[in-house]
Design a binder for these strands. Structure first.
Lengths: 160, 160
DNA sequence: AATAAATCAGATAAAAAAGTCCTTGACATT
DNA sequence: AATGTCAAGGACTTTTTTATCTGATTTATT
């Protein structure tokens, strides 16, 4: 079916968002993230690893280890995450798959979509993780299971 | 990487567009379409089959057989094609994959995207194939290989 | 030093998407 | 009636994405 982000990327965004709602110095384990956000444990491990290698997260081994944001959440945009996981091909590729379609020589169909594509792009670079986290604290969202999971972060649940 | 449409759907749109630039009563073979649009022959066969079953195309067997639009291109929208191939899940699913996210209980991130989603949806139902075909006839697009392929439709080339 | 909790790394498996092959039946043309 | 060209349809293969498993390494705690 498709739809803008890969599953991997969705998981990445959800995870970074989760980390953004914690104190910067607090470390969060894969176990906790996977449990809270219902993401497969080992799959998530790889994703966090990638985000770490890309410099978005820092990781610490050993007991009391885990992951944390490598920078203030205000500085992390959705685009950073998407870029790290899915890449930026979507800013270039023709939505209809005409391989010959380039920005210099767009096909007509491409044009219909360029505005939308720009909207998407700007939304990605405009929205930082801190803003998004703030919005998720609004009372009308707190009853949402996944958000509650992010907002309350007590003892981790087991997965695998 | 993802990005809105499946490959299958892209091929479907390209094909319908191609058919829309021909006379209604003209039949086009899989061979011609596959050759012109560089789509794998057998894969395209299946796609055209699906479009036929969904009522967007009519098919005719035997020599002189082939496919044609089942209705005037003015009546076919991008949405019809997307609906037939990829389905309409994208109008409902949360972009970030929060499974608990529904129109009644959107997550905050979902909200950022609802406008875009609407834009996409409206563009899909607004744009009919006849319009798109007309645009592709504009001189500035005619030098584009794929468009040339669609605009000139002489003797078919062989594939597989 | 031993233990346990965590990430790291690589191999494998399962599922989904994309693509291929092959046989059948329709049907114009000869 | 025979032939060749076409779509229909099902089974299969390949590739990509998603997910799992297993073992190693790091490190805080006892």
């Amino acid at each position: 079916m498709s739809l803008i982000f890969s599953r991997e990327c969705e998981y990445a965004i959800q995870s970074v968002l989760y980390l953004a709602l914690k104190r910067r110095d607090e470390r969060t384990s894969i176990r906790e993230l996977a449990g809270r956000l219902s993401i497969p444990y080992h799959f998530l491990g790889k994703i966090l690893q990638r985000l770490t290698r890309k410099g978005l997260l820092v990781s610490h081994k050993g007991p009391l280890g885990g992951f944390a944001l490598s920078m203030p959440p205000e500085e992390i945009t959705l685009f950073h995450i998407v870029e790290a996981i899915d890449g930026t091909a979507f800013t270039r590729l023709c939505v209809l798959g005409f391989s010959e379609c380039t920005p210099e020589r767009p096909c007509s169909v491409h044009e219909y979509w360029s505005t939308l594509r720009d909207n998407i792009y700007h939304m990605l670079i405009r929205k930082n993780i801190a803003d998004m986290g703030r919005d998720m604290r609004k009372p009308e969202y707190q009853r949402l299971p996944a958000v509650k999971a992010i907002l309350s972060h007590p003892s981790p649940t087991r997965t695998t």
